[in-house]
Each structure stands twice: as structure tokens, then as C-alpha cells.
Design a binder for these strands. Structure first.
Lengths: 237, 237
DNA sequence: TCTTCCAAAGTTGTCTGACAACCTGCCGGC
DNA sequence: GCCGGCAGGTTGTCAGACAACTTTGGAAGA
């Protein structure tokens, strides 16, 4: 079940306070609600509130003064986006990150179809051929696959897409190799050929300037990938 | 050294553990001492230990597993995702971030339509009514609007969505107030009513369990928002 | 009236004890 | 040998208490 997001109460409080600070409702120098107010309004114990505040302090978003209160730091600057990913984390965490990746890539395919230049389409197609070459020589083509997706993200003309994709990749990609190793060679070949068909459909949508089709193809592709991973998660449990 | 007048016991424990991890004495995957061991060896209460571990978790250095223990993360030096924080950044940068937000929110609406619980739908609807109330009393409803979008992200059941949205919000939200101030009251009223219609369509899609419609409604909503912002960018150039 | 001081209330920091939720490994029955 | 359940260990959460410190208001004195 992917619904187990209630694993940590402190994280909820943390997310809420963090959002209020980053959203600007709590300005630098403002005082946070007291621990007692937070316990009553959020319905949690003081222990939970204190852990959330400790995390905020570790992130540099707030400073606390004993006897006075907790205050928003002067510079709640671009405190970064992190993903608590680890080999010991739950498989559900990986699935959650993969869903985020799906969201970004689907829309990236759409933007790419709307704005692609001739040169960018060439890069995407070259990446597709590069995967083909790797497969024919019996390689895993993990790096080539990643390059293909990055080429699409770059074809959006929005640098944030490839940047974010690269960030997510560092948390998701290492797992993919696991799956390949458990299949038989025959299964693996069928699987990889199907992947290439899905890739080709994405490329066609982008090259034809059809954002709806490009998005649909990318969504299908990544949804299947998610499903495969989800089944693996169930199987290895 | 570091043991100078740090008025905070938790910070001492944090510094010690952090040094052991970064120094390599605790390798990735290793299990930390249990909370009870730490309380006795460091001579502090469990409260202090837990706050220190919460800070380590916020830093991404450790992950905890209930019933098992706390473990050093696989990649303690994983570089987080940052968005080039140019305080007076160009409007184009904001547009790029808004497109990333669009991607995440469109898919979030889809997942929310697929997985929403009755309670979550209630929260989303309540957020919509909250915007209504704010508008009728002549407020800007910026905070309520953000809460509405966050409620949808939470209805996905995937905690990464609200987390990422909160992160992006810090880079986009502050600008929105600019636009409202340049419209005449009449224009503003028309605009806000239209926004609410778009919101209602999104809610309907989610409540009906129709992910395609939910995504389309959210995409229309955010695309229009992007277009408005883009026109503003051109006009003020 | 103005200043100074102090007491009380409020707030964070820390300790203690308890129970719930969950994981792990052992042990006995089969 | 295999399997299931049970007991112990571990983190997550709650509740109450006291210590350390800040803030604020008013009383006392000039």
C-alpha cells in the first residue's frame, strides 16, 4: 500500500511549518507559535513538536531562544530540497520518488513537443539510436536510457527540467540494475525490445509536434515502469 | 573546539554523531547505537537523543526504522536540489520554475483523483470554501489558494508531492502579490471569480475519481496562470 | 512624573516513566 | 528440516514535571 504516509508525525509538523515559512506567511524574525499552541492545534504531543523544530533548526530555518520562543531565521534562503533516500528505506519511498519523476517527465515530453528545435529532435533521436546500439551489443544500456530521457528534458528549453531529472536520477537509477539481474536472458530481451517501442512512440510524438500524444506515450512508458517496479517490490517482500 | 558554550545538549550529541559519520567511523548502512545506549554513554535523556537524531535525519545523514534502529544513509554527501536563488532573478527564471510546478501539480491532481479518500476530498473542498470566504471579505486569499493546492498534493497519498510543492512555493509565491496590485478592482473581481470556477472544476474531477479530467482541469488552470504571468513579464519589460 | 527593581507569568530545555507499533531472532511443535 | 508464534528489543508517541531563562507589568522609591 502506498498510503503509509503516516509513518512520521514529526515530519507532518515539519512539512507544515516549513511550508508556512517558505510560503512567506511567517516572515524572517517572526515568532513561531509556542510549543503548547502547536501541540493543541496540530493534535500531537510536545515530543513531536520539539523534533520538528529541531529539524527546522538543523535546516537553518529557525533559531530558538530559551525563555523567549522560536523565530524564523533572518535568511530562510534557498534551503534545498532533499529526499531521504537510502538502501534501507522502504521500497514505497522509491515508488514515491518515481511518481514524482513521472510527473516531471510527462510534462517535459509535452513541452518538448511544443517547442522542440530541429537540432534538439536530432539529439533525442541520436540518443534513441544509441540505446539500440548498446542493446545489440548486449549491454544494459542504463546510461544510454538516462541520456535519452535527459535529451527530452533538455528539448523543453527549460533548464529546470533536466536539472531536476538529474537530481531524481541519483536517487532512483541505482535501483534499476537490480531488476535486470533477476530476469532470464530471454525475458530480458523481450522486455528491452518493448521498452524501445515505447521510446520510439515518445520520439514520434515529440517530432510531430503533438504534445498530447507525447505526454500520453511518456505516461504509458513510465506507468509501466512503475508497475514493474511495484510488482518487484511485492515479490521480494 | 566545539564544546564551547553550546547552550544546547542536543547540539553536542548531534555534533558528535555527525563527526563520527562524516569521519567514516560509521559507514553507510551501519546501525547507530540505540537511543538507550546513547542516553547512558553521553549522559543525557532520551529526549535530547531523539532531537539530535531528528536533526541528523533532517540533514539526510541517517534514516530510522521503527522497531529496528537508526542507520547511516547510503550517500551522506548526496547533493540536494537547489534552484538558483537570484533575489532579483529574471522573470524567465520564475516562469521556468512555474512550469516545473505545473508538471508536478497536474500529475498530483491525477493521482489524487485515483486514490483520494473521503476525508481527503473533504479537506480539499474545505480549502475551496475557505478561498470563497476570503474573497467575499475582500482578501487576497493567497495563503488560502496555496493551502488548496497543498490539500490536493496531500490527497495523492505520496508525501513527496506536498513536500516538493512547498519547496517550489518559496520560489514562486512571493511574486504573485505583484500582479494583484496592478489590476483595477473590477478586473480583479472578474479574475478571481474565474479562478474559483477553475478550482471547482479541478475539485469535481478529483471527487468524481476522474484522473483525466482532473489533470486537464489542473493543466488549464495553471497554463492560464502561466500565460497571465507571461504577459505581465512582457508588459513590464 | 520618572526610574528602578522585583515578582509572576510565559517559554524553551531537560528529565522521567509509560505504552503503542513494529522488527528480529529464537524456540518449540510438526 | 520447516513453519508459526512468541518474547524481547527498538523506535514512535504521549503525559507530566521541574529547571533555566526571558518578558512584562506594576509597585516602590526618588
Amino acid at each position: 500500500m502506498a498510503d503509509n504516509r503516516s509513518s512520521n508525525l514529526a515530519e507532518k509538523v515539519l512539512a507544515r511549518l516549513s511550508a508556512e515559512i517558505r510560503g512567506g506567511r511567517l516572515a524572517p524574525g517572526d515568532r513561531l507559535p509556542t510549543e503548547q499552541e502547536l501541540t493543541s492545534t496540530m493534535g500531537v504531543s510536545r515530543t513531536v513538536v520539539r523534533e520538528a523544530v529541531a529539524a527546522l533548526r538543523a535546516d537553518g530555518l529557525v533559531v530558538t531562544r530559551r525563555g523567549s520562543g522560536a523565530y524564523v531565521a533572518d535568511n530562510p534562503t534557498a534551503s534545498p530540497f532533499r529526499i531521504a533516500a537510502s538502501p534501507l528505506g522502504r521500497l514505497g519511498d522509491v515508488l514515491n520518488v518515481m511518481e514524482l519523476r513521472l510527473a516531471v517527465e510527462v510534462e517535459a515530453a509535452g513541452f518538448a513537443a511544443e517547442r522542440r528545435t530541429r537540432r534538439q529532435v536530432g539529439v533525442v533521436k541520436a540518443a534513441l539510436r544509441s540505446i539500440d546500439r548498446a542493446l545489440k551489443s548486449g549491454e544494459g544500456a542504463v546510461a544510454e536510457d538516462f541520456a535519452f530521457h535527459r535529451a527530452i528534458a533538455e528539448a523543453t528549453g527549460n533548464a529546470q527540467f533536466p536539472r531536476f531529472l538529474a537530481f531524481l536520477g541519483s536517487h532512483v537509477i541505482p535501483r534499476q540494475s537490480v531488476r535486470l539481474s533477476v530476469d532470464t536472458p530471454a525475458e530480458r530481451r523481450t522486455y528491452l525490445e518493448r521498452i524501445q517501442q515505447e521510446h520510439a512512440r515518445i520520439v514520434a510524438g515529440i517530432a510531430n509536434g503533438d504534445p498530447v500524444e507525447a505526454r500520453r506515450a511518456m505516461r504509458d512508458h513510465l506507468t509501466r515502469s512503475l508497475e514493474r517496479y511495484r510488482r518487484l517490490a511485492e515479490g521480494s517482500k
